[in-house]
Write a protein that binds this DNA or RNA. Structure first.
Lengths: 347, 347
DNA sequence: CTGAAAGCGCTTACAG
DNA sequence: CTGAAAGCGCTTACAG
């Protein structure tokens, strides 16, 4: 500490340099650096020399040479590292990885299959030890190719067409069905729904959960109250406004199938002054949901738990490539906060 | 596509394999894969063989062998990949990196110097092409060591004691001073302040901005209205409650120096039913600030721009190691939304 | 234009 | 216990 020599940029000390300075063989340096027992006197010499040269092991060379070719890196493909769901997932995976001595290469596919494919290719080129992917669904070939080539792959949040790949998902159908049941129990019969494009696996699942629950409860689904092509707050705001002002009967409650859609719907309700009259439950919790007026009731997923499970399964498969495939479905939880507890107007 | 052979896990095709199958030299394969012009007939043979074997270049070996030792990786150390400020920064850096063919190893220091040091060591071991760091301030030795060893380092959000290192920060002092001026212009003279521990560089700067502006405007600072040791919503909620109910004169306006503190303060104001009476401006914008009642006025930073600048500078230094050091200070912007526009009670 | 050979910084049998 | 040597998968002079 402090005695480290200032080196010229570009020239970094190697084990060979350390060996020369310490007057020992290269193998001995490797052993000391890696903690294999070596004569204490030699050990000291090596440590001293390493210290003096500011030696840092080169992981690049290590993983190239090691028999198992481990890079101690996990490749993570998210939708967008900056959205709260993705980053909560990311954090959980990071924590599990750090514990195991792995670093994570995180990236965003922006819901674009082409970008996802590029990312996966690059990640494979890096020889990551494993891949955790929130897939657009449009890169299954690349995922399958990686899987067949022996790179562990875990799909998260969305099931892929690949039924050979480990997968961690939330109980999307059950969650949305729960929301419908909550509203129905309060007396709501006219329930609207806003969800993302059916191209998204989660969007399909959530709509199915809605449709099934409605059918079970004998509530008719009115096309005018269903919107399945919004994917951000602005478009949802317009769609929900439309839904509530189109003339004819309006829904007394709405379910939104995703974070930003929930925000958009609330904006519409506030615009119309209906936020205290129309019940509203969103799928997936979000920061400050409890500070809005009224607080937003949600079906919460547990992204951190999803991340932990994904990491656990990935590591297990790295350690034991032939273990049986896992498909984990995580439960969701209803958090009543107010907006989902609004009763329908008395007839 | 599709004709790729299923390979046994663990055995991945190399350039040597491709060369053998194509009946050409290894050098030729390398040339084709890297786009150096080669006889079209040979090129086809190589491409065909590569395709058939599902060949993927091994970046690990490439960077070990290349003269410039590039790994095409940037190491990113954030406070927490999951907080909105960090992840916005992350995203901007990712975009700039992808454009340049780099991937980013992102990690969280959790505001712990020891963890930051470990991360930096590991990242250097990986031979990242450069480091972008939101530093705890407690890892300057490691940062300096990296810098001296020729690894480009850019500090973001917080200046370090290292005045040799490229740095991108926000105008923290100016931003908070602006908040004070806004409140003063409305007639507020009794202004409280809640900020993080002075150990944090940004916390110091923001407090200085507050203190200076108050002094300039001739407003006395009352110790009972100043709190400099909160670092999350819960502690701030308590502190602000205390500040407003301690007896004696209470502040008519408060400034909070960070996201979660702003939320905590608003919770306190709501608890006391004072959210429509006490003016409040927060430093750093946050999602849904505009949907609270009243909407929260903030001094906004621009994390995306910070990320872009950091990436720009990093790449510039990678390309030109001897360029002069840059210190960029980004302006902040006041966003009036309501909570900062509340007037003091008439005397 | 093409290819054999050297070598990047390590790990790992293998012999002393 | 220690160290010389081979070799991981590439790139890059260098010779043909």
């Amino acid at each position: 500490m402090g005695s480290e020599r200032t080196r010229v940029p570009g020239r970094v000390a190697t084990m060979k340099d350390v060996a020369a300075l310490a007057g020992v063989g290269l193998t001995t340096v490797s052993r000391v650096i890696n903690g294999t027992p070596v004569d204490p006197v030699l050990t000291d010499k090596v440590l001293e020399a390493a210290q003096q040269l500011g030696y840092r092991k080169d992981t690049t060379a290590t993983s190239l040479r090691r028999a198992d070719r481990r890079t101690n890196t996990v490749g993570l493909v998210l939708e967008d590292v900056a959205n709260p769901f993705s980053s909560a997932l990311h954090r959980a995976i990071e924590d599990a990885s750090v514990e195991r001595g792995l670093l994570v290469l995180a990236s965003s596919n922006d819901e674009k299959p082409e970008r996802e494919r590029e990312l996966l290719k690059t990640l494979r080129t890096r020889r990551v030890d494993g891949l955790i992917v929130v897939s657009t669904g449009g890169a299954d070939e690349e995922l399958d190719s990686a899987h067949r080539a022996g790179t562990p792959v875990v799909c998260v949040d969305r099931a892929s067409s690949l039924d050979t790949v480990d997968t961690v998902i939330a109980d999307n159908r059950g969650g949305v069905a729960k929301a419908v049941h909550v509203l129905h129990a309060l007396g709501h019969r006219h329930i609207g729904f806003a969800g993302d494009r059916p191209a998204l696996w989660t969007a399909r699942e959530r709509y199915e959960g809605f449709a099934q629950a409605m059918a079970e409860l004998g509530c008719p689904i009115r096309p005018a109250w269903i919107c399945r092509d919004v994917h951000n707050a602005a478009t949802t705001r317009r769609a929900v406004t439309q839904m509530l002002t189109a003339g004819g009967p309006a829904p007394t409650a709405i379910v939104t199938a995703q974070n930003s859609l929930t925000v958009g719907a609330r904006l519409a309700l506030v615009d119309l002054g209906l936020h205290d009259q129309v019940a509203h439950i969103g799928f997936d919790d979000f920061p400050l949901a409890d500070m809005l007026d009224p607080p937003v009731s949600v079906i919460a997923q547990d992204p951190a738990e999803m991340g932990r499970q994904a990491a656990r399964i990935l590591f297990a498969r790295i350690d034991e490539p032939d273990r049986p495939r896992e498909l984990v479905t995580l439960p969701t939880r209803y958090i009543p906060r107010g907006s989902g507890e609004i009763r329908p107007p008395a007839r």
